[in-house]
Design a protein around this nucleic acid. Structure first.
Length: 857
DNA sequence: GCGGATCAC
DNA sequence: TATGGTGATCCGC
């Protein structure tokens, strides 16, 4: 998407300074900067959003203050020493400078808005934006003159420009157009890298070489005249901007014309559109230089889609990206591949233009007197003392005009998440219900890509825009809605409990899954399973596929161990209370942990031994631990495939429900021990260890081209839809473990109630005795949870001394954990910077002592 | 591993 | 009335 860096409004002074970079020429339509800023401030001031912006700004200022204090303590000697070290590194970077690649950054102009204008002629010549009243993704250039920008709420935009037309986004359409563009790009670099729907990097080095020997025919294109109304809409709009004179042609651009525009042989050459009775006119031949290639690309894009693109050409991606912004819209710019050209280009460039330098970094550097890249270079020694190594290495790269010269293949995905903003929700029931909905959506997405992850993170934003995240890592990868919700619910509960009796006043909730097993992890897993089986272990019959009926088999008592020991989340809460996060992990108590480490070692040894035996004849008879059928005369691979299939099948999933640490689902499979060994994560081997479904990762790695979409809509959709797909066990899982267990004592889980619940009749809350209308067990459990909490608080208030001791402790631990959590705030010891670009090579020891102060001369 | 921040789009 | 959603990374614990 187009660079919106300067368009984002910050707060306070920033907000005023940052908005509206419009150079309004006298007499032109639009607003001047002052007016824009005044309107924005009027709409913003006093809002909760603004309050939070101010708060964040204060934090940044504190960070800067600390940095300045540090700076004041730096001695000249330290600085000299740093200078030598930094210059040594700079010298190495300089020596590795690579100018031999031609990188291109292509960026569609006002993409979403341009598509909408193309498809609806009525929108032409009008200020429009794509998005909603809450948030805009893009605006056209007409609207920008009023200060209407991406990432601006629609209602503010409307105040700036009452005529503004806000078009709801249409991502399917944008995706389709994007695909058309990508088809073109692939002709020049089959390995091009799409950054988003409207932005891509290409390495055209190879294409340029091949192109040198291409005949003209291969470089000849025709102007399509078929549907002139829709043609070049965006280009025309660009023309009206008056940024430069493009009167000659909306298609062929600024500077140099194509090499030779011969008019002969109109029947050879290329045409973007194969179908349709279009008349082809104006043959154009593009040259063989990089500039010509990029013109050709942009020409073809416009011919094919009716939309204009801007582009940058440079010896690396960092520069190419900056270049594409230079002559936007509908223009291009090249930095020639010489060191001198690069340094000239960089010299006066504001660092903020560089991808990776955001608002905060800009402000911090500005405090050190660094605004341009040349200044960044001048202060290199100081920066190396004030920032982390990653950061100053990054800075040094920038100030030398260095960047990536190859396009990294998309790596494996590291996380997947859903989040939603809504109007305030403060009722716990609603919050749980929403959480469940998010988990369902997320599970769907995960399963589409065959992913399972171990870490679940919830994100909460309250009505004051304060954001909190809470995470938990479980022993084995999970992916179903039930599994994820079971964890997320507990994380949410901890937060709700912590603030009790005040409600959490939420405006956003999100759920994320990360910690996907790597390729290596999966292989490891596979090996350990094979090894285990080859070691001759047998799996005794399990309960078999889950019955359909409502038999008591489906309602196992919580395993005794669950009640005897603290639940997983109780432990988590305890951790917070005691303030030592590291002591206890997701599995087990201290003693167990000690045992575990021993067990793991034993297990590892066993696995290694088994690995050796992998060469043994591998045909044999195995019993599938999921379906309990004997598989005779099969290879291990075939057997594993069978197990995979069983696990994927609904009944298999049922039988191997994940262990979430609470132990609540553990009783589901009667052959706990063996099942666990089979699916072992290599962490525990005792008989409390649960069965889990993640032992065999069947989903392959997914190379995704993450096409981030700027969502233009906020959907305040927190409807409580059906909640009918949760397993009966969630009853135990949520209501009775934890407080429930202590309420009713260890042995007496209220079985009668459970039976009543699961018999499909009325759900009667065992705490308040009220019949609950919800058909959903999890929601019912949530209700019981809340009732239990009310009970606790009520009793605390009225009858403190008569409380069951354990109960009192529970409620206290919640309180203390909260205050602890709350107190964790900004803890920046030393100004740091995060960067989103691949780290530089580490400095190797070097003997070079030469100085490089002449870089900018 | 967790939580807060920063950044890009 | 009203200030987004997704993914990644870094840093200090």
């Amino acid at each position: 998407m187009e660079n919106i860096k300067e368009q984002q409004h910050g707060s306070g002074e920033d907000l005023l300074l940052r908005v509206g970079l419009n150079d309004n020429k006298a007499g032109m339509e639009g607003l001047d900067k002052e007016k824009i800023n005044r309107i924005i401030m009027e709409a913003t001031k006093g809002s909760r959003f603004y309050g939070n912006e101010l708060k964040k700004e204060k934090q940044v200022n504190q960070r800067i203050e600390k940095m300045m204090q540090q700076k004041a303590q730096i001695t000249n000697q330290q600085l000299r020493k740093a200078q030598l070290q930094v210059d040594r590194f700079a010298m190495e970077l300089e020596q590795s400078r690579n100018l031999s690649n031609t990188m291109v950054h292509v960026d569609m102009d006002a993409f979403y808005a341009a598509v909408e204008m193309r498809d609806n002629p009525e929108l032409k010549d009008k200020p429009i934006a794509v998005g909603s009243m809450s948030m805009l993704s893009t605006s056209n250039y007409h609207a920008r003159r009023f200060g209407v920008r991406a990432a601006m709420p629609g209602f503010i935009a409307k105040r700036l420009c009452p005529q503004l037309i806000i078009v709801p986004p249409n991502f399917d359409k944008y995706r389709a157009v994007s695909e058309e563009v990508k088809e073109i790009l692939a002709d020049y670099d089959p390995d091009f890298m799409a950054v988003s729907l409207d932005e891509a990097y290409l390495n055209i080095t190879k294409h340029l070489v091949e192109r040198q020997s291409w005949p003209e025919d291969k470089r000849r294109y025709f102007t399509k005249m078929g549907n002139p109304a829709e043609n070049a809409t965006a280009g025309k709009e660009a023309d009206t901007l008056g940024e430069r004179d493009r009167a000659i042609s909306p298609l062929l651009f600024e500077d140099s014309p194509p090499d030779v525009p011969p008019l002969e042989s109109p029947f050879h050459g290329n045409s973007e559109e194969q179908s349709g009775p279009q008349v082809l006119h104006n043959p154009v031949v593009f040259g063989t230089s990089a500039e010509e290639v990029v013109k050709e690309i942009r020409f073809r894009i416009e011919q094919k889609t009716g939309l204009t693109a801007s582009a940058g050409i440079a010896p690396n991606t960092m520069l190419a990206k900056i270049c594409s912004d230079k002559n936007k819209p509908n223009g291009q710019y090249q930095v020639l591949p010489t060191r001198q050209a690069v340094m000239n280009f960089i010299k006066d460039l504001p660092i903020r233009k560089v991808s990776g330098i955001g608002k905060v970094t800009e402000k911090m550097l500005k405090a050190l007197g660094v605004v341009t890249c040349a200044e960044l270079y001048q202060q290199r020694a100081l920066l190396s003392l004030l920032f982390s190594e990653t950061s100053w290495h990054y800075f040094l790269h920038i100030s030398l005009g260095l960047g990536s010269t190859h396009l990294a293949r998309d790596g494996e995905r590291k996380s997947m998440s859903v989040e939603r903003t809504f109007s305030e929700i403060s009722q716990a029931e609603e919050q749980y219900s929403l959480c469940q909905e998010l988990c369902r959506d997320l599970a769907q997405d995960l399963q589409k890509e065959g992913l399972k992850g171990r870490t679940i993170t919830i994100k909460l934003k309250n009505v004051d825009f304060e954001v909190k995240t809470r995470a938990c890592t479980v022993p084995c990868p999970i992916s179903t809605a039930e599994e994820i919700f079971a964890v997320a619910k507990e994380l949410l509960r901890t937060e709700i409990d912590a603030d009790f009796p005040r409600p959490l006043r939420l405006r956003l909730m999100g759920v994320r899954v990360s910690g996907f097993p790597s390729e290596e992890d999966r292989k490891q897993q596979q090996r350990s399973i094979v090894g285990f089986l080859q070691a001759g272990h047998q799996v005794p019959p399990a309960t078999g596929p889950a019955p359909e009926g409502m038999g008591t088999d489906l309602l196992p008592k919580p395993p005794e161990t669950t009640l005897k020991k603290k639940s997983f989340f109780d432990k988590k809460r305890l951790e917070r209370k005691e303030g030592h996060q590291d002591a206890l992990k997701c599995d087990g108590t201290d003693e167990q942990n000690l045992q575990t480490s021993h067990t793991v070692q034993v297990l590892k040894r066993t696995m290694n031994e088994n690995l050796v035996s992998e060469n043994l004849p591998s045909l044999g008879t195995f019993t599938c631990p999921v379906c309990c059928q004997e598989q005779g005369g099969v290879s291990l691979e075939a057997f594993n495939r069978h197990v995979d299939t069983c696990l994927e099948a609904p009944s298999g999933r049922e039988a191997s429900r994940v262990w979430l640490g609470s132990g609540a689902a553990a009783a589901e499979v009667s052959n706990k021990e063996n099942a666990h060994c089979f699916f072992s994560c290599g962490e525990k081997q005792d008989d409390q260890a649960p069965p889990k479904s993640a032992g065999l990762a069947t989903g392959g790695p997914v190379g995704l081209s993450s096409e981030a979409q700027s969502a233009g809509t906020s959907s305040p959709n927190h409807s409580k839809e059906d909640h009918t797909d949760l397993p009966e066990h969630s009853y135990h899982n949520s209501a009775w473990e934890g407080q429930g267990a202590s309420l009713f004592g260890e042995q007496e889980c209220p079985q009668p109630d459970v039976c009543e619940v699961t018999a499909g009749r009325a759900l009667v809350c065992p705490v308040c005795n009220q019949e609950q209308k919800t058909p959903d067990l999890t929601l019912f459990n949530v209700h019981v949870d809340i009732c239990l909490n009310k009970d606790v608080i009520h009793e605390l208030r009225n009858n403190q001394d008569n409380l069951v001791p354990q109960l009192k402790e529970n409620s206290r631990s919640s309180e203390t954990s909260l205050s602890r959590v709350r107190k964790t705030s900004a803890k920046t010891k030393r100004p740091t910077l995060m960067k989103t670009h691949s780290a530089s090579k580490k400095a190797k020891p070097s003997n070079t002592t030469q100085t490089i102060d002449t870089f900018f001369k």
